Computed example of a mutant assay.
Amino acid sequence: MSFAAQSAYSNPGEYAALLDVLPSDVAGITDVVRNVLIHYRGGGIEFTGERLEEINHRWIDDLLATDQRRNGTPLATPREPADRVAGCCRDYTLLTVSALRHKGIPARSRIGFAPYFVPGFNCDHVVAEYWNGDRWVMVDAQLEPGEHWGFDVQDMPAGKFRSAAEVWLGYRSGELDGDLFGVDPSLPLKGGWFIRDYVFLQLAHLQCDEVLLWDGFGGMADDLEMDLGPTDEVAALLVASDAGDEAATTKLRDLYREDPEWHPADRLEVHSPTGTPPYYVNVTTREQTPAT
């Protein structure tokens, strides 16, 4: 897997020139990313209608097209919060990954849970990693650096962010309470089934299919009424791969290619937080059709 090459999702396409002039350092890149994007729930603005639909930008070229229609200036030119593109953690991460790959720096997105947003709860989250020539460095591009976080958001310490696979194995062993992992403690989007679905998302992102957090495919489900052994096995492989086990990495790649339970193929089912009815997206043609 070449994390230095653009994926279908991270490719800026005709907007590549916008990335040419970005800073070469990661801190500078993430500053620009936060200038382009605003979190649809945490940005202090209530988005509705077409503005809220911006959270469904799947491809970076579409996201950049929206920004340029609205602003028409280099990405580093200051934008008012209301002029930024509405998105979520996945979008902050993917734009960062796109910019790094554009500069030839291997980068990838990581799916999991973060304990630093809501005390006593672990929110679903996506962060970036880049290869600095010696190790993978984890970056939370959504966060403005500052001492109040209690850690360096540009080089996150081990254990501050838990991958979905780690959490799933902890949940299965009884070490972790599944109800403490999800979107928000006040919402039903949490628990064992939610963690399991995020294992699917983690694998997809590892294979450079950086799907939306509300995409459904393969064996994902909103319950646990199935044989959980395969999920346990994939989660264990993901943890081993993260630890540098090349055999595990190869097994995951082959499984993703060959097993339709784990691969989104050419169609995703979208359950958007916008409240629109579920629909399908063909990831090759980008065509949308109603889910029936």
Rank of each mutant, 00 (worst) to 15 (best):
M1W: 09
A4I: 11
A5D: 15
A8G: 14
A8Q: 14
Y9F: 13
N11T: 10
P12N: 06
A17Y: 11
L18H: 01
V21N: 11
V21P: 02
L22P: 01
V26Q: 06
G28N: 07
V32I: 13
V32S: 03
V33P: 02
V36C: 03
L37Y: 01
R41L: 08
I45L: 15
E46W: 07
E46I: 12
I60R: 02
I60V: 15
D61A: 11
T66E: 13
D67L: 04
R69G: 12
R69E: 15
R70N: 15
R70Y: 07
N71R: 13
T73S: 12
L75Q: 01
A76C: 12
R79W: 14
E80V: 06
E80P: 04
P81Q: 09
P81S: 08
R84E: 02
A86H: 00
A86S: 03
C88V: 05
R90K: 12
L94G: 02
T96M: 09
T96I: 09
T96D: 05
G104N: 11
A107T: 10
R110N: 14
G112T: 03
G120T: 10
F121W: 07
F121Q: 02
C123L: 12
D124V: 06
V127H: 01
Y130K: 04
D134K: 08
D134T: 14
W136N: 09
V137T: 07
G146S: 15
W149Y: 13
F151I: 08
D152R: 11
D152W: 15
D155H: 06
M156Y: 15
M156W: 04
P157N: 15
P157Y: 14
A158T: 13
R162H: 07
A164V: 00
A165S: 05
W168M: 04
R172Y: 00
D177E: 15
L180F: 10
P185E: 09
S186Y: 10
S186W: 10
S186I: 12
K190G: 00
W193C: 02
D197A: 03
Y198C: 04
A204V: 00
A204Y: 02
C208V: 08
E210T: 13
E210W: 09
L212R: 03
W214S: 09
G216W: 00
G219I: 02
G219Y: 02
G219P: 03
D222H: 06
D223E: 09
D223H: 09
E225A: 14
P230H: 07
P230G: 04
D232W: 00
E233T: 14
V234L: 13
V239E: 06
A240H: 03
S241R: 03
A243K: 12
A243R: 14
G244K: 06
E246G: 06
A247C: 04
T249F: 07
K251P: 00
L252I: 08
D254G: 14
L255G: 03
L255W: 02
L255Y: 05
Y256W: 14
R257E: 14
R257A: 15
E261M: 06
R267Q: 08
L268E: 04
E269A: 11
H271L: 07
P273I: 06
G275A: 08
P277H: 12
P278L: 07
Y279M: 11
V283R: 04
R286I: 12
T289L: 07
T289D: 09
